[in-house]
Design a protein around this nucleic acid. Structure first.
Lengths: 160, 160
DNA sequence: GACATAGGTCAATGTACTTGACATTTATTT
DNA sequence: AAATAAATGTCAAGTACATTGACCTATGTC
């Protein structure tokens, strides 16, 4: 692996399938990678009677504490009715808290409780461990390549 | 394990987040990349009143022509009742054909019609174009890195 | 002929949304 | 102070798509 191998049609030394085969493989591989990353969190959530929707809520609230219900709704792109049930369940289980905002008593700000933080960290942690392992095994350069390709793909989906 | 140790070349020309931030970003990026890859096929399918299930059927039958209903069922991990409706719809639309197997008249072998091949190619083609673009833009080396990381992740999901 | 297998179908149920209509509380406007 | 608008919650009905369970046909195997 000396320095930068220019793009062109040069020979790559690892067994990367060529042309059509590479593209054929790409989707399959991504599919399984996705499954791997989702599997553990799903298992953990299931033991508490929670679903991927609950996970999505925890995830976004963890990264944007004090988010309003409306913001969450548009972020997740679901109706308020769809959001309501999981939101209440999370509240009942003591994983999130809803509090009136100072600036506007109509909006309810969502925050994780200590338990919520713990669960979210556990779920996210499982995923991050997988990524960290994969990046470590594949090497820093591969990590960078992975990211470059993913960002190119994500550009088409209007990544927020 | 990871063969050579490509690292050391530390100089990353792109702004790869460090440590925790990198892992935090990984899942998000993968999420959007996935969405990008799925978006176009979904749109095309919708215009014909088809769903992702129909796509999955077309995909597997394209790669294993003559597959039996039972094989497809266990491959997709759904019940025969769940498979029945989409299967008939595909047949009605002239995208697949069901024919009795020579060796056993009970089993029905599924094959794509010319139209089915065309649609499957269109759907798959859209996805492959995205991958090809992303790989081309990111470069051959990034492609290799992407693949290495994905395979590491996929290992955990028992990739077939 | 007895039994198993591949497949199809009917029916009831469940889950996870959706749209639509409306109520509540609080802000903002006039 | 009323009128109106905004953020949220809730009730109800409908849709999409899967499930389980029971039963039927056609065919193959012993």
């Amino acid at each position: 692996m000396s320095a930068k191998t220019p793009v062109t049609k040069g020979a790559s030394r690892s067994a990367v399938p060529k042309g059509q085969a590479a593209l054929n493989e790409a989707w399959r591989v991504m599919h399984f990678a996705l499954r791997a990353v989702i599997a553990e969190p799903d298992r953990i959530l299931a033991t508490r009677g929670l679903t991927r929707m609950h996970h999505r809520i925890l995830f976004f609230v963890a990264h944007t504490p004090g988010m309003s219900v409306g913001e969450l709704q548009s972020t997740l792109d679901v109706t308020k009715q769809a959001l309501n049930a999981p939101l209440r369940q999370l509240q009942t289980q003591g994983l999130i808290e809803l509090a009136k905002a100072d600036h506007d008593a109509r909006v309810r700000e969502i925050r994780l409780t200590a338990d919520g933080v713990a669960l979210e960290a556990q779920l996210t942690g499982e995923q991050q461990r997988l990524f960290a392992d994969a990046f470590a095994r594949a090497g820093a350069q591969a990590h960078e390549g992975w990211r470059a390709v993913m960002l190119e793909l994500a550009r088409h989906a209007g990544m927020r």
